[in-house]
Amino acid sequence: MLSRIAESLFWIGRYVERADSTARILDVHVEHTLADPWIDESAVSRSLLSVMGTPVEDGARAGRRELLEVLAHDPLSPSSITGALGAARENARRARETVSSDMWESLNTTWNALASGRWRAVAAPRFFAWVRERTAVVNGLVDATMSRDDSWQFFVLGRSLERADMTARLVDTRAVPGVGAQWPLLLRSTGAYEAFLRAYRGSSTGAAGEVHAAEFLLLDRLFPRSVVHALESAEACLEALEPQPRRAGYAADARRVLGRARTRLEFSSPEQLLEDLHAQMRAVQEACSQASLAVGERFFPLAGAVSWTAGRS
């Protein structure tokens, strides 16, 4: 398939997942700050912005309003919810001959609702719930309307890389001083709480509960939002896109990077991961970034980085 189409589908998967996961992370943050009236909101917001890769300059204000503007409503930033969904819509426009009409209409309708600005006046938890619903609709339409060919593999590859990265960022908020959301809240934010209770038949509080919750979100091979499951899905997509039977090693740089990241997690105990949680999650994020660069160099080297600006139609 054309590298232009492949790149667009890859980034649609990444941007839709980024919007969904950012909404989940912000939902955890807002609930956590509202539940604790003594929390230092500025310190927490600065820590969260640092985890999300958008640190605040010294002296700049960083309250809840500024946090939501940067990570939820900024239409020019692909790191924000609005910017990511706008970028997904733009990439769908570029690949209009490949994506289904239902998928295009869903992304276009979502972007039009965001561009109107009416969601800025809505309570944050309601906005986050709407974003999760809209991204779930897009993913459902992809599952229902796309053939399982290379276009599907590129979409799932992008989604899996972004999911591993964003789940690592969500878990990383547990390790950052001043943020420290509880494990039950992290499980609920990923939609994992009920699945966790069925798997472990117990509470997620206390020392044993923390170990089990970390194991579930990081190492579980059956839960689709765990880091290991997302990395395995990305590896499977790479193998399907470029099967290369070899007697030794892997030719693709992306597969080597992801394989090392996955095995480093799988051969560590949950207790070891908790001891150095921040460094472990940073390693996962760096691996996803390196793998994304390797995918771009291998499959769409002439296209360059995907960018999006307001005003394009």
Rank of each mutant, 00 (worst) to 15 (best):
L293A: 10
R312E: 13
L161W: 01
S233K: 13
I39G: 00
V70P: 01
T167N: 02
M166C: 09
A60N: 06
A84L: 06
A23G: 08
P55F: 12
S116D: 14
G140T: 13
T33Y: 06
F10M: 04
R46C: 09
F127P: 00
Y200R: 09
G206V: 06
E242A: 15
Y250L: 14
F10H: 11
D74F: 10
A60G: 04
S50L: 07
A214M: 13
H73I: 00
V228M: 07
E133P: 00
D149W: 04
H229Q: 08
A19K: 03
G296Q: 09
A214P: 01
A136M: 13
M146C: 11
F299R: 04
G63A: 08
V122F: 01
G53R: 07
R247S: 10
S289Q: 14
T33G: 04
E97D: 10
R246S: 13
D58C: 03
A303G: 04
R94K: 11
E41G: 02
T135K: 08
D150N: 03
G304W: 05
T54C: 02
A192Y: 07
R120D: 11
T22P: 12
A240E: 09
V137N: 01
T135M: 14
D143T: 11
L2D: 06
T135P: 13
H212W: 09
G209R: 07
D149A: 08
S292C: 03
S79R: 15
L161V: 08
R255N: 01
A261D: 03
A303H: 11
P184R: 08
Q272W: 01
M1H: 08
R96P: 03
G206Q: 09
E97K: 01
S42A: 11
A129M: 02
E97P: 14
H73F: 15
G53T: 14
G180P: 00
E297W: 09
L265T: 06
V28N: 11
A214N: 08
L76N: 12
V295N: 06
F155K: 04
N108P: 00
A305R: 15
S289W: 03
R126F: 04
P224C: 05
P243N: 12
E275Y: 00
A279F: 07
L219Y: 08
N112A: 15
S100F: 04
A236D: 12
A283P: 01
E162L: 07
V16R: 07
M146L: 14
R64K: 10
S50W: 05
R89S: 12
G63V: 05
E235W: 04
F196R: 05
D276M: 03
F267G: 00
R174I: 05
A252G: 08
A115P: 06
R93H: 11
G202Y: 02
R169M: 10
A23L: 06
I39D: 00
R14Y: 14
R198I: 01
F127Q: 02
S204H: 03
